[in-house]
């Protein structure tokens, strides 16, 4: 095929018409999801209107949890804290566990990816371990660490690390032969090879791993906290169930979902800062 014709307009400083147009299209895109949410709420409301419904209706939920919604920052000591504090302490655990997993995972991944001996030795092990459900690690970590909080962090770590390792390894192994050949012909030193070729070539894979990892961590923390107690969104849900505050559960779930989405977007955003133009896709 012939090359596409270059008919892109030159970038003009500011074009009001285009700006308005862009805002318009953005707004238009918001319409379908808004409608979908509305329909969902209506169906929910209709299904739970009856007096003997097991679950609260949306209106009811908001009424029940109004205190929680309008004041996420209260702190009555113990585990009786606002949703902000609950989410924050969960996020702290995730932050520590995930950071450890990212550092160790990328390091191990590069090591395993560059050595075919390590790869053939360790890859099967990784493949087995990554299928272990996060909560299965909890008893082991409790037995080993004896404390609730480090155990929860360990569960985050062990959950997030496998996709990071596996993707990094894959990234290193997928470096095009050409780039390696260039390095060999130029006789690049080990550090130059690492920083100029290996690392940039692997970055897209690393970020894929990080994205999967953060998602899994957030899944794991909610479950782990239900078991270990203390402040945290997971235990908040468990506590609410034990006290039959179904509306609280629903509002907590919405918080969990939104935070999970934000975490995912955050990694993508960091990725766009780091990744070169051509490799974003």
């Amino acid at each position: 095929m012939t090359a596409p014709l270059d008919i892109r307009p030159a970038r003009s400083p500011f074009n009001f018409q285009r700006f308005v147009g862009q805002v318009g299209t953005r707004l238009k895109r918001l319409i379908p999801p808004t409608v979908a949410i509305l329909i969902f709420l209506i169906v929910w409301q209709l299904l739970t209107m009856g007096p003997d419904a097991n679950l609260p209706s949306p209106v009811r939920t908001v009424q029940d949890t109004w205190e929680l919604i309008i004041n996420p920052f209260f702190d009555n000591g113990g585990t009786d804290k606002g949703l902000f504090w609950q989410v924050l302490s969960s996020l702290q655990r995730v932050a520590i566990g995930f950071t450890l997993a990212a550092i160790t995972g990328v390091g191990l991944g590069i090591l395993v990816g560059t050595s075919s001996l390590m790869y053939s030795a360790l890859d099967p092990l990784f493949q087995i371990l990554r299928t272990v459900p996060p909560l299965a690690w909890l008893p082991i970590s409790l037995a080993a660490l004896q404390q609730a909080n480090p155990s929860a962090i360990f569960v985050i770590f062990i959950t997030a690390i496998w996709p990071i390792i596996i993707n990094t390894t894959e990234g290193v192994r997928q470096i095009p032969q050409d780039y390696t050949n260039v390095a060999r012909v130029l006789r690049l030193s080990k550090s130059q090879y690492f920083f100029k070729i290996l690392f940039p070539a692997t970055v897209p894979y690393i970020f894929t791993g990080l994205r999967i990892g953060i998602g899994l961590s957030w899944l794991a923390i909610v479950a782990a906290e239900m078991l270990i107690g203390g402040v945290g969104i997971g235990f908040f849900i468990w506590d609410a169930w034990n006290s039959s505050r179904i509306s609280d559960i629903i509002i907590a779930i919405i918080y969990v979902g939104i935070v999970g989405l934000l975490l995912d977007r955050l990694i993508v955003f960091v990725g766009t800062l780091v990744l070169p133009e051509e490799q974003k896709q």
Binding site: R184, V185, L186, R187, I197, P276
Partner: peptide, 28 residues
């Protein structure tokens, strides 16, 4: 072994996509 006294131009260019034209040459 390979060395810069025998430089290769590959069919698929083998430029590093994360470096600019100048940086690619500068690297070498």
């Amino acid at each position: 072994d390979p060395g810069p006294d025998r430089m290769v131009v590959f069919q698929n260019y083998s430029l590093l996509p994360w470096l600019t034209v100048r940086e690619n040459i500068a690297l070498a």
